[in-house]
Amino acid sequence: MIKTIIPTNMNLPSNLAKSSVLAFVIFWVIIGSKDYESEVLPYVMLSYIPVFLCVLIVIIGTICPFFWSAKNTGFNNQNVFKTCFPYYAIVVFGICVFGISTSDFDNMAIAFFTSVFITTSQSWIWFAKEKTK
């Protein structure tokens, strides 16, 4: 019998799909509001691949371990959210503000770090709203 790495109380593929689309839209809305050129449209669509990979790494590396570690402790998704999310949000917000300020408020950095913060926060909410068995 093969054990799965992903617990059954998390719908990781659905969360990754929604989060990557959200990050993609936020990033390009911010970039497009200032630096829109119609010649880059084919590259915009192609940029979904690195956006998805970044979202995959961030969610699996920084959000999922909280839910996976709580699997055997009796915590459900809502308890993990209420316990860990406030601290996670504070740390990520600090990192994003630091990244934006050290880049001298470059539009690319603003787009990247804004999409990171909003996407990770929303991903936490999507995981917390999932039904536990």
Rank of each mutant, 00 (worst) to 15 (best):
C96T: 07
Y87C: 08
K71C: 01
S20F: 02
S33R: 11
F52H: 05
S33Q: 14
F27E: 10
K82R: 05
F127P: 02
P50I: 00
S115E: 08
A111K: 10
L41V: 08
V25N: 10
F75E: 05
L53Q: 04
S101F: 15
P65V: 03
N72H: 09
W28Q: 00
T120S: 04
G32N: 04
T132K: 08
K18P: 07
F98Q: 13
D106Y: 13
V29H: 10
S33C: 13
T4A: 12
W68E: 05
S47N: 00
P42Q: 11
G61W: 00
Y88Q: 06
I59S: 01
K3L: 02
P86F: 07
Y36F: 11
Y88P: 09
S14L: 15
K34H: 05
I2L: 11
F81V: 01
Q122D: 14
T120I: 08
K3Y: 03
S103H: 11
Y88R: 09
S19W: 03
L12Q: 07
L56Q: 01
C96W: 08
E39P: 09
K3H: 04
F112C: 15
M10G: 09
Q122P: 13
I31T: 10
T73N: 00
S121A: 10
C64P: 07
C54L: 06
V55H: 00
F113M: 15
T73M: 02
E37Q: 14
P65E: 04
T73K: 03
W124I: 00
I60S: 06
A111E: 12
A89H: 08
K129Y: 11
F52V: 00
Y48M: 06
A111D: 12
E130T: 04
I125R: 12
Y43Q: 04
E130F: 03
Q78F: 06
D35H: 07
M108V: 15
M45S: 10
Y87W: 10
D104S: 12
T4V: 14
M108C: 14
C64F: 07
V80S: 01
K129T: 04
